[in-house]
Design a protein around this nucleic acid. Structure first.
Lengths: 105, 105
DNA sequence: TATATTTGCAACCTAAGGGTTGCACAATTA
DNA sequence: TAATTGTGCAACCCTTAGGTTGCAAATATA
Protein backbone atom coordinates (compact mmCIF):
# COMPACT_ATOMS: atom_id res chain seq x y z
CA UNK A 1 0.00 0.00 0.00
CA UNK A 2 1.70 3.12 -1.29
CA UNK A 3 1.42 6.03 1.08
CA UNK A 4 0.35 9.55 0.27
CA UNK A 5 2.63 12.46 1.25
CA UNK A 6 -0.30 14.47 2.60
CA UNK A 7 -1.29 11.64 4.89
CA UNK A 8 2.37 11.19 5.88
CA UNK A 9 2.77 14.83 6.83
CA UNK A 10 -0.49 14.92 8.79
CA UNK A 11 1.12 13.32 11.85
CA UNK A 12 3.06 15.68 14.18
CA UNK A 13 5.66 13.04 15.08
CA UNK A 14 6.41 12.44 11.42
CA UNK A 15 6.73 16.17 10.79
CA UNK A 16 9.19 16.34 13.70
CA UNK A 17 11.20 13.46 12.23
CA UNK A 18 11.40 15.29 8.90
CA UNK A 19 12.56 18.45 10.62
CA UNK A 20 15.24 16.49 12.47
CA UNK A 21 16.69 14.63 9.52
CA UNK A 22 16.49 17.63 7.20
CA UNK A 23 19.41 18.86 9.32
CA UNK A 24 21.21 15.56 9.73
CA UNK A 25 20.56 11.93 8.77
CA UNK A 26 19.71 9.74 11.77
CA UNK A 27 19.27 6.09 12.69
CA UNK A 28 15.92 4.83 14.08
CA UNK A 29 17.46 4.50 17.54
CA UNK A 30 18.77 8.05 17.47
CA UNK A 31 15.33 9.32 16.43
CA UNK A 32 13.54 7.29 19.11
CA UNK A 33 15.62 8.98 21.81
CA UNK A 34 14.05 12.31 20.82
CA UNK A 35 10.47 11.17 21.38
CA UNK A 36 8.44 9.97 24.29
CA UNK A 37 7.39 6.68 22.73
CA UNK A 38 8.82 3.27 22.04
CA UNK A 39 11.38 2.62 19.33
CA UNK A 40 8.85 0.43 17.54
CA UNK A 41 6.33 3.27 17.38
CA UNK A 42 8.96 5.52 15.81
CA UNK A 43 9.85 2.67 13.48
CA UNK A 44 6.25 2.62 12.22
CA UNK A 45 6.44 6.32 11.42
CA UNK A 46 9.71 5.71 9.59
CA UNK A 47 7.97 3.02 7.56
CA UNK A 48 5.24 5.44 6.47
CA UNK A 49 7.77 8.14 5.55
CA UNK A 50 9.86 5.59 3.66
CA UNK A 51 6.89 4.16 1.74
CA UNK A 52 6.05 7.55 0.33
CA UNK A 53 9.75 8.24 -0.29
CA UNK A 54 10.03 11.30 1.91
CA UNK A 55 13.07 9.64 3.49
CA UNK A 56 15.73 7.32 2.11
CA UNK A 57 17.69 4.64 3.99
CA UNK A 58 21.47 4.45 3.72
CA UNK A 59 22.84 1.24 5.22
CA UNK A 60 26.09 1.29 7.16
CA UNK A 61 26.82 -2.05 8.79
CA UNK A 62 23.87 -2.91 11.00
CA UNK A 63 22.87 0.72 11.28
CA UNK A 64 20.54 2.50 8.90
CA UNK A 65 20.81 6.22 8.42
CA UNK A 66 17.61 7.75 7.10
CA UNK A 67 18.10 10.77 4.89
CA UNK A 68 15.60 13.45 4.03
CA UNK A 69 14.40 13.33 0.42
CA UNK A 70 13.99 16.98 -0.49
CA UNK A 71 12.92 16.15 -4.01
CA UNK A 72 9.79 14.36 -2.79
CA UNK A 73 8.93 17.21 -0.46
CA UNK A 74 8.77 19.44 -3.50
CA UNK A 75 5.58 17.65 -4.50
CA UNK A 76 3.90 19.38 -1.62
CA UNK A 77 5.28 22.66 -2.86
CA UNK A 78 3.83 21.97 -6.31
CA UNK A 79 0.41 21.26 -4.86
CA UNK A 80 0.58 24.56 -2.99
CA UNK A 81 1.39 26.40 -6.20
CA UNK A 82 -2.25 26.31 -7.32
CA UNK A 83 -3.10 28.52 -4.35
CA UNK A 84 -0.25 30.99 -4.55
CA UNK A 85 -2.23 33.28 -6.80
CA UNK A 86 -4.99 33.30 -4.20
CA UNK A 87 -2.87 34.56 -1.36
CA UNK A 88 -1.19 37.09 -3.55
CA UNK A 89 -4.39 38.73 -4.72
CA UNK A 90 -7.67 37.18 -3.69
CA UNK A 91 -7.46 37.52 0.05
CA UNK A 92 -7.57 41.26 -0.28
CA UNK A 93 -10.69 40.85 -2.39
CA UNK A 94 -12.25 38.66 0.30
CA UNK A 95 -11.64 41.34 2.88
CA UNK A 96 -13.39 43.80 0.61
CA UNK A 97 -16.33 41.42 0.13
CA UNK A 98 -16.72 40.89 3.87
CA UNK A 99 -16.62 44.63 4.47
CA UNK A 100 -19.22 45.20 1.78
CA UNK A 101 -21.57 42.62 3.30
CA UNK A 102 -21.12 44.13 6.74
CA UNK A 103 -22.05 47.55 5.40
CA UNK A 104 -25.20 46.18 3.77
CA UNK A 105 -26.67 45.06 7.10
CA UNK B 1 -11.42 20.67 19.50
CA UNK B 2 -9.35 22.88 17.24
CA UNK B 3 -8.28 21.15 14.08
CA UNK B 4 -4.81 21.01 12.64
CA UNK B 5 -4.28 22.25 9.08
CA UNK B 6 -2.01 19.32 8.19
CA UNK B 7 -4.63 16.86 9.34
CA UNK B 8 -7.25 18.83 7.40
CA UNK B 9 -5.48 18.50 4.05
CA UNK B 10 -4.64 14.84 4.55
CA UNK B 11 -8.04 13.88 3.17
CA UNK B 12 -8.40 13.88 -0.65
CA UNK B 13 -12.01 15.10 -0.55
CA UNK B 14 -11.02 18.09 1.56
CA UNK B 15 -8.17 18.92 -0.82
CA UNK B 16 -10.65 18.77 -3.69
CA UNK B 17 -13.00 21.11 -1.83
CA UNK B 18 -10.16 23.60 -1.35
CA UNK B 19 -9.28 23.42 -5.04
CA UNK B 20 -12.91 24.05 -5.97
CA UNK B 21 -13.53 27.04 -3.74
CA UNK B 22 -10.14 28.58 -4.44
CA UNK B 23 -11.70 29.34 -7.81
CA UNK B 24 -15.18 30.26 -6.61
CA UNK B 25 -17.01 30.27 -3.27
CA UNK B 26 -19.65 27.53 -3.03
CA UNK B 27 -22.52 26.44 -0.82
CA UNK B 28 -22.46 23.00 0.86
CA UNK B 29 -25.14 21.76 -1.54
CA UNK B 30 -23.18 22.90 -4.57
CA UNK B 31 -20.09 21.14 -3.26
CA UNK B 32 -21.97 17.94 -2.51
CA UNK B 33 -23.08 17.71 -6.14
CA UNK B 34 -19.43 17.36 -7.14
CA UNK B 35 -18.79 14.31 -4.99
CA UNK B 36 -20.08 10.77 -4.84
CA UNK B 37 -21.17 10.94 -1.22
CA UNK B 38 -24.00 12.33 0.87
CA UNK B 39 -24.40 16.01 1.61
CA UNK B 40 -23.87 15.25 5.29
CA UNK B 41 -20.50 13.63 4.61
CA UNK B 42 -19.40 16.72 2.69
CA UNK B 43 -20.78 18.83 5.53
CA UNK B 44 -18.44 17.03 7.94
CA UNK B 45 -15.47 17.87 5.73
CA UNK B 46 -16.61 21.48 5.64
CA UNK B 47 -16.72 21.47 9.42
CA UNK B 48 -13.11 20.32 9.64
CA UNK B 49 -11.95 22.90 7.12
CA UNK B 50 -13.90 25.60 8.92
CA UNK B 51 -12.59 24.69 12.37
CA UNK B 52 -9.02 25.19 11.24
CA UNK B 53 -10.03 28.33 9.35
CA UNK B 54 -8.98 27.17 5.91
CA UNK B 55 -12.44 28.27 4.74
CA UNK B 56 -14.76 31.05 5.84
CA UNK B 57 -18.57 31.12 5.73
CA UNK B 58 -20.43 34.05 4.26
CA UNK B 59 -24.15 33.89 4.97
CA UNK B 60 -26.65 34.98 2.36
CA UNK B 61 -30.21 34.27 3.45
CA UNK B 62 -30.43 30.57 4.23
CA UNK B 63 -27.49 29.82 1.99
CA UNK B 64 -23.90 29.77 3.18
CA UNK B 65 -21.09 30.46 0.74
CA UNK B 66 -17.79 29.06 1.91
CA UNK B 67 -14.79 31.08 0.82
CA UNK B 68 -11.21 29.96 0.57
CA UNK B 69 -8.96 31.50 3.25
CA UNK B 70 -5.70 32.05 1.41
CA UNK B 71 -4.08 33.63 4.42
CA UNK B 72 -4.38 30.42 6.45
CA UNK B 73 -3.11 28.38 3.55
CA UNK B 74 0.10 30.36 3.71
CA UNK B 75 0.96 28.54 6.92
CA UNK B 76 1.92 25.55 4.79
CA UNK B 77 4.22 27.73 2.83
CA UNK B 78 5.88 28.89 6.04
CA UNK B 79 6.32 25.33 7.26
CA UNK B 80 7.85 24.35 3.92
CA UNK B 81 10.35 27.18 4.16
CA UNK B 82 12.52 25.16 6.54
CA UNK B 83 13.07 22.62 3.75
CA UNK B 84 13.62 24.98 0.83
CA UNK B 85 17.34 25.10 1.49
CA UNK B 86 17.40 21.31 1.35
CA UNK B 87 15.97 20.99 -2.12
CA UNK B 88 18.09 23.79 -3.41
CA UNK B 89 21.39 22.32 -2.27
CA UNK B 90 21.31 19.19 -0.14
CA UNK B 91 19.70 16.80 -2.55
CA UNK B 92 22.70 17.13 -4.79
CA UNK B 93 24.88 16.33 -1.80
CA UNK B 94 22.78 13.24 -1.09
CA UNK B 95 23.31 12.05 -4.63
CA UNK B 96 27.02 12.48 -4.10
CA UNK B 97 26.90 10.59 -0.81
CA UNK B 98 25.01 7.69 -2.38
CA UNK B 99 27.48 7.55 -5.22
CA UNK B 100 30.40 7.57 -2.78
CA UNK B 101 28.92 4.71 -0.76
CA UNK B 102 28.28 2.71 -3.92
CA UNK B 103 31.89 3.15 -4.93
CA UNK B 104 33.12 1.98 -1.54
CA UNK B 105 31.49 -1.45 -1.98
C1' DT C 1 31.08 -19.42 19.38
C1' DA C 2 28.26 -16.99 22.58
C1' DT C 3 26.38 -12.50 23.59
C1' DA C 4 24.89 -7.88 22.82
C1' DT C 5 23.06 -4.43 19.64
C1' DT C 6 20.18 -2.57 15.86
C1' DT C 7 16.41 -3.12 13.38
C1' DG C 8 11.91 -4.80 11.43
C1' DC C 9 7.61 -7.39 11.72
C1' DA C 10 3.31 -9.41 13.81
C1' DA C 11 -0.44 -9.42 17.13
C1' DC C 12 -3.14 -6.82 19.84
C1' DC C 13 -5.85 -2.71 21.86
C1' DT C 14 -8.10 1.69 21.83
C1' DA C 15 -9.27 5.99 19.77
C1' DA C 16 -10.22 8.57 15.80
C1' DG C 17 -11.83 9.07 10.77
C1' DG C 18 -15.03 8.97 7.33
C1' DG C 19 -19.12 7.24 5.81
C1' DT C 20 -24.30 6.44 6.57
C1' DT C 21 -29.38 7.60 8.14
C1' DG C 22 -32.56 10.40 10.66
C1' DC C 23 -33.98 14.57 12.61
C1' DA C 24 -34.29 19.60 13.98
C1' DC C 25 -34.31 24.31 12.75
C1' DA C 26 -34.16 28.66 10.18
C1' DA C 27 -35.33 31.00 5.88
C1' DT C 28 -37.89 31.18 1.71
C1' DT C 29 -42.15 30.57 -1.01
C1' DA C 30 -47.07 29.17 -2.11
C1' DT D 1 -49.93 29.62 7.85
C1' DA D 2 -48.26 25.48 5.53
C1' DA D 3 -44.85 23.42 2.70
C1' DT D 4 -40.27 23.41 0.79
C1' DT D 5 -35.38 24.20 0.86
C1' DG D 6 -30.58 24.62 2.84
C1' DT D 7 -28.02 23.52 6.56
C1' DG D 8 -26.10 21.43 10.84
C1' DC D 9 -26.04 17.95 14.49
C1' DA D 10 -26.41 13.31 16.72
C1' DA D 11 -26.22 8.36 16.69
C1' DC D 12 -24.35 4.61 14.67
C1' DC D 13 -21.03 1.44 11.98
C1' DC D 14 -16.80 -0.11 10.07
C1' DT D 15 -12.08 0.68 8.92
C1' DT D 16 -7.75 2.80 9.76
C1' DA D 17 -4.12 4.93 12.75
C1' DG D 18 -1.06 5.05 16.35
C1' DG D 19 0.43 3.13 20.33
C1' DT D 20 1.93 -1.11 23.05
C1' DT D 21 4.58 -5.83 23.91
C1' DG D 22 6.99 -9.74 22.16
C1' DC D 23 9.89 -11.97 18.94
C1' DA D 24 13.12 -12.95 14.99
C1' DA D 25 17.04 -11.80 12.02
C1' DA D 26 21.35 -9.69 10.93
C1' DT D 27 25.56 -7.49 12.35
C1' DA D 28 29.18 -6.48 15.77
C1' DT D 29 31.91 -7.72 19.77
C1' DA D 30 33.78 -10.64 23.75
Amino acid sequence: MKQDIFQAISDPTRRAILTLIAIQALTPNAMAEKFDMTRQAVSKHIKVLHECELIKPVHSGREIYYHFNAKKMQEFDHWLAQFRQNWETQFNQLDQLLTTIKEQK
